[in-house]
Nucleic acid binder design. Structure first.
Lengths: 224, 224
DNA sequence: ACGGCAGGATTGTCAGTCAAGTGCTCTGGA
DNA sequence: TCCAGAGCACTTGACTGACAATCCTGCCGT
């Protein structure tokens, strides 16, 4: 896990996986507008793959909440409502609270990946690379959860973070940047963990999550 | 093993959904032994469906952890290790703790579905119907989570409860029944919620989860 | 203006095929 | 006899082509 490990050319492990990743990135980065229809035929044509392959990818994206579809209708990129965003962050709260209090109570060291993601955020902000900024933010929180060593906690977290990234990506497409006190809030969480103070870490996390949540909801109200 | 391809009739829902449900039930009830291979061709033959249909179902089961497969190998029903069981219950703890403390703090009424599932457990115990007993137990906990009104919390919970049901189903296939203090432990959780005491509800939940977890791990050690 | 019908669009499901990878057997040599 | 390597069978990955069922849209007739 060092800085120079930027050299994986990532051969499409499998065609389906590569297609899935590509579509996923386009969706969460807002390159495919919310409400836009994604038919199996369109995906198959755009990527020059067979329709069953495209179908499988769409189903995986639907399972992760990055697309929505009802029977015999086209899949569309969802735009989450305020209610859904509140709910989404409630789910984060459950998992991430458990993670940070566990880490702090355990006297665990600060997760290296979390520290690393702080640097990535800093760089993304400097480069005005919004998608990278969002991705690094997600990475920070995922690193905290992963540091507990629980794969099931990570699985559950991963299940909902896709949609979090989706709304954040869509919001930034509208709203451009905002002053980055995110890093400070992240640092406060890490400080709570490092000092072995579950209460402090928990409080810092809640503050951060609520702030992020309220920003997203406020932005939603504006664009409506 | 043998080539006596059994025919299973599917209820009309959607072919894929019906197939998924049927396979899911057979797996979690232990009707398909852990370690048993489930090839796409076998499923397709047994149910008289096309291989792509079977393939889609297997992929959905794999995504839920009810089957495991590595590239170009057959899917097999997993037998969870003690470590995985501990991890699984850690995940439950995160979500269900959040749910019961939220319910108690909110002063919410006792979820009717949870009460109902208590009756179902009682009946299943009386009928010596182990799969129904497990299913009702799962239902109780799902009802608690669902009562929070959070769909994402429910989603995350659902993601791991499939594997919980799997291990419980496999364990009971070996171990037969045991005196049912489960209902008492459930009642204690409900009492904590009803009295609006988050701490009491939380404690009762932890006691119940740890007891269930330890039973499973102990049973695993015996059968090994 | 309104309701029903027809056609297009899209997904659900199927059959069959080829390619590629994995594991196992079985042979050939030491 | 024992071990190693080649070959084969099984299984999945991906594609092509096709048909049925369903949903939606828009037109037409009343």
């Amino acid at each position: 896990m060092s800085d120079h490990a930027e050299r994986f050319v990532l051969k499409p492990a499998s065609l389906t996986d590569a297609l899935f990743d590509s579509l996923r990135k386009r969706i969460v980065n807002g390159q495919i507008a919310p409400g836009e229809k994604l038919t199996e035929a369109r995906v198959a044509t755009e990527y020059s793959v067979a329709r069953p392959t495209a179908k499988a990818c769409l189903e995986r994206l639907i399972a992760r909440g990055l697309l929505r579809r009802s029977a015999h209708k086209s899949a569309v990129v969802p735009e989450l409502t305020a209610k859904e965003i509140l709910d989404l962050f409630l789910g984060r709260e459950a998992v991430e609270s458990f993670a940070v209090t566990t880490l702090a109570a355990r006297g665990a060291p600060v997760p290296p990946d979390a520290v690393e993601s702080q640097r990535l955020i800093e760089r993304a902000v400097r480069d005005l690379d919004f998608p990278a900024q969002v991705e690094s933010d997600i990475l920070f929180h995922s690193a905290l959860v992963a540091a507990t060593g629980s794969t099931y906690l990570a699985k559950m977290h991963d299940l909902i973070m896709g949609e979090v990234q989706l709304t954040m990506g869509q919001a930034q497409a509208h709203k451009a940047t905002h002053p980055s006190n995110i890093e400070r809030e992240h640092a406060a969480i890490l400080a709570g963990i490092e000092s072995g103070d579950p209460e402090a870490a928990h409080e810092a996390l809640l503050f951060h999550l609520h702030a992020a949540r309220d920003r997203l909801v406020a932005n939603l109200a504006v664009s409506k």
